[in-house]
C-alpha cells in the first residue's frame, strides 16, 4: 500500500510555483530521504503531505485519503520542522505533556529516556532554549510520537556532528523496533544516505528521481585521465560534469559503461572513480559553467 500518492499536485505562492504538477508514490514502512536545493519545494511538499497547507490544484492522498482538514488521517501523521511554535509560557515538560495527549501511540518511556540522554531541562522555557536544544525537543517528539507517517523536515538543524550521529542511531533503532514510513529532508545527504532505503530528488517543484539509494550511488562514475582520449570516449555518453587541468580531464558520466569499455579505459590508464551521492546531487541540480565567468 502506498502511504503517499500525489497527482499533478501544484502549489503556488502568488506567482511562485513551489510544486509543479508533482507526481509521486511513497510505499509503506521505508525510510525515505527527500533531497533538493533550497527552494526546490521540499518543505512545501512535506507540508502538503502533513495537511498543513492546501494545494492550489491537483491531489495529495495519505493512506488513500485526502489529508487537508481530515482528522482521521491527520491522527496518523507527525510532522516536525524548525518552525514549531509553542506558547511563550511553555516549558519543556509542558510540550512533552501536550505531545503525550496528542499522539495516540506516544512512547513516554522512550521520551523520558531521550530527555535524560540529551540532558534537556524540563523546567526551562522552550523559547529560551538554544537552536540545537529546540531541535532536540522536536526530534524527541518526532520519534516518540511513533506515527505511521513520520515527517522530519531538516531534523538536524543546529545540532553538532556528535548529536546528529546520535540522532540517526536512535531513529534507526526505533524504526527497526517499530517499522513505519519515515521521510527525512536534509541537505546532508552524505550523512543520512546510509539510513535510507529510497531517495527522492526534487528540483524546481518536480520529481527528478525516485530510486533506491543503491541505484543513486551507482548512477554515475568519474573518469580521470588524458584529455584527448577522454573527450573522444565521452562523445556518446551523458556527461554530468567536466573539469580539466592541463592535459588531464575529469568527466562525470552516467554509469552505463560496459565491462569491455571498462577494460579499454583501464588499459588506457584512465582512473574510474566513484561519485559520492552528495556530489551527484550537486551535479544533477546545479548549472555548470558558472565559475568560468569569474
Amino acid at each position: 500500500m502506498n502511504v503517499i500518492t500525489t497527482q499533478s499536485l501544484t502549489k503556488k505562492y502568488k506567482d511562485i510555483i513551489a510544486l509543479d504538477e508533482f507526481n509521486i508514490s511513497i510505499p509503506e514502512n521505508k525510510i525515505i530521504g527527500l533531497i533538493g536545493k533550497n527552494g526546490a519545494g521540499k518543505t512545501t511538499l512535506l507540508k502538503a503531505c502533513a495537511g498543513r497547507i492546501r494545494q492550489t490544484s491537483g491531489e495529495v492522498k495519505i493512506f488513500g485519503e485526502k489529508v487537508f482538514d481530515n482528522l482521521d488521517v491527520l491522527s496518523k501523521i507527525v510532522f516536525v520542522d524548525e518552525e514549531s511554535q509553542y506558547d511563550d509560557s511553555f516549558r519543556v515538560k509542558d510540550i512533552f505533556a501536550l505531545a503525550a495527549c496528542y499522539y495516540q501511540s506516544w512512547d513516554d518511556d522512550l521520551a523520558q529516556k531521550l530527555i535524560k540522554h540529551f540532558a534537556l531541562k524540563q523546567t526551562q522555557k522552550y523559547k529560551k532554549l538554544s537552536r540545537g536544544m529546540k531541535t532536540q525537543v522536536n526530534i524527541i517528539i518526532g520519534i516518540c510520537a511513533r506515527m505511521p507517517l513520520t515527517i522530519l523536515d531538516e531534523p538536524t538543524l543546529g545540532l553538532d556532528a556528535a548529536v546528529r550521529k546520535d540522532f540517526y542511531n536512535i531513529l534507526l533503532r526505533d524504526y527497526m523496533n517499530h517499522p513505519r514510513t519515515i521521510i527525512i529532508s536534509s541537505h546532508l545527504l552524505n550523512e543520512i544516505e546510509i539510513l535510507l532505503e529510497d531517495i527522492v530528488l526534487i528540483d524546481k517543484g518536480k520529481v527528478l528521481m525516485n530510486v533506491p539509494v543503491e541505484e543513486f550511488r551507482n548512477y554515475s562514475v568519474a573518469l580521470v585521465g588524458e584529455s584527448t582520449f577522454l573527450k573522444e570516449f565521452v562523445q556518446d555518453k551523458e556527461v554530468l560534469d567536466e573539469s580539466s587541468l592541463g592535459n588531464a580531464s575529469k568527466y562525470v558520466i552516467k554509469n552505463e559503461i560496459t565491462e569491455k569499455e571498462k577494460k579499454h579505459l583501464v588499459s588506457n590508464s584512465i582512473d574510474i572513480q566513484s561519485v559520492s551521492s552528495q556530489d551527484l546531487f550537486i551535479y544533477l541540480t546545479s548549472k555548470g559553467g558558472f565559475y568560468e565567468e569569474f
Partner: peptide
C-alpha cells in the same frame, strides 16, 4: 552495528 538501513 553499522547504522545502516535494515533493508540494505
Amino acid at each position: 552495528e553499522y547504522q545502516i538501513n535494515p533493508a540494505t
